[in-house]
Design a protein around this nucleic acid. Structure first.
Length: 346
DNA sequence: CCAACCGGGGTCTGCCATAGTA
DNA sequence: TACTATGGCAGACCCCGGTTGG
């Protein structure tokens, strides 16, 4: 026991521990995460439990929430209720909110500043985002709403500046598009987003218009990646393709036609390429049909095997069916097998 | 009918560091 | 000075199908 604890303090703490254990909370985990909560007087675990039960959360979900974000039990019922109502301005049901809390308790409970939350909502509307977009933001990146208003402003301003500096004079449009494409952008640091934009700009020698299209289109998502990860993956892609005889220009064209490739970690990218090359698919076929890299390695492998069995020749036939949807692919495979049987006279 | 083109959907938390505060 | 509020970080794709053009 700590020095200086009075009897009432230690009994209070005892009561808290008992309450939490009764609720099924993983106390060890909780203590490890936020030890300070366990030294406090007047925690409100019962109120929190009643509150969440009234919103339709199960006991298990409540226990899991407290285990992962113990500070939740320091919030007052009034504050919780107010915060909930603000979230309900965006979401249409309590259940949707419960689902978010279950996924990410921290995003709801980390701040008790409801005025800031309200201001965030107003601000996001004021920059031209639609209700549907806010809904998407709260579902996908709930932390956005716990950011300080100032932090959100900084990111929006960055995006607006980028837009204007690229000669597009409708920043509302641009901001709406980029956030809709990438609802996670407001939970990234401006440093990260800025560095990634600069990376795209300097690496691919794009003109303003091309960069704008990339940023609010296929490239929007890669702004979230850590700067290190982007440059490591880019370097790896370049080196791997160089080793297979590609020119820098080809590599650039390839990445721009399929920016998602930057998501692939070094090993995964190399493994995918190797598994295609092993099957006598040429690099040029790969870079001309980048979407085949959408498929997982196991899908690629099983499809290649099935197609070879069906007499499919990759060096003379198209390879895009490697990334077709299951349904379309199966239909195609069935047809190929039937044709082969006819040829073989079966 | 067939495949190319293209966009969309899901998904992103849990931890650490630190300035601020009571 | 213990605790809180907040910022920032690492991490790491795959699949589906509507529309369009031949």
């Amino acid at each position: 026991m700590k020095c200086g604890n009075t009897d009432s303090e230690s009994s209070e703490n005892e009561e808290l521990l008992n309450n939490l254990l009764k609720m099924g909370v993983d106390v060890d985990m909780a203590k490890k995460r936020q030890p300070g909560v366990f030294n406090r007087m007047g925690t409100k675990e019962q109120d929190l439990k009643m509150f969440l039960l009234s919103k339709g959360a199960s006991k298990e979900v409540i226990a899991s929430i407290i285990s992962r974000y113990p500070r939740a039990i320091t919030r007052t019922p009034e504050s919780l209720s107010e915060r909930w109502d603000l979230w309900r301005r965006i979401m249409t049901s309590d259940l949707e909110i419960i689902n978010i809390l279950e996924r990410s308790p921290e995003s709801f409970f980390r701040s008790r500043n409801n005025l800031n939350l309200e201001n965030n909502i107003k601000f996001l509307y004021s920059v031209g985002l639609t209700h549907k977009c806010l809904c998407r933001l709260l579902t996908s990146a709930p932390r956005t709403f716990s950011n300080s208003l100032d932090l959100n402003k900084q990111m929006i301003e960055l995006l607006q500046e980028v837009c204007l500096s690229l000669g597009h004079n409708e920043p509302r449009d641009f901001v709406g598009k980029i956030i809709f494409k990438n609802p996670f952008i407001l939970i990234q640091s401006t440093k990260r987003v800025k560095t990634n934009i600069e990376f795209l700009q300097s690496t691919f020698n794009l003109n303003n218009e091309q960069l704008l299209i990339l940023l609010c289109g296929p490239g929007a998502k890669i702004l979230d990646l850590s700067n290190d990860y982007v440059s490591r993956n880019y370097t790896n892609i370049k080196e791997k393709l160089f080793s297979l005889g590609c020119t820098e220009e080809e590599v650039h064209r390839f990445i721009l036609s399929y920016p998602d490739v930057v998501f692939l970690g070094e090993k995964k990218f190399n493994d995918k390429i190797d598994c295609l090359i092993e099957e006598k698919i040429s690099v040029s076929q790969i870079i001309e049909n980048p979407r085949i890299l959408d498929s997982s390695i196991s899908t690629l492998k099983s499809r290649i095997k099935e197609l070879v069995n069906a007499g499919y020749n990759f060096s003379t036939s198209n390879i895009t069916l490697l990334s077709w949807s299951q349904k379309r692919y199966k239909a195609k495979l069935k047809k190929l097998n039937t044709e082969q049987n006819i040829v073989l006279g079966n």
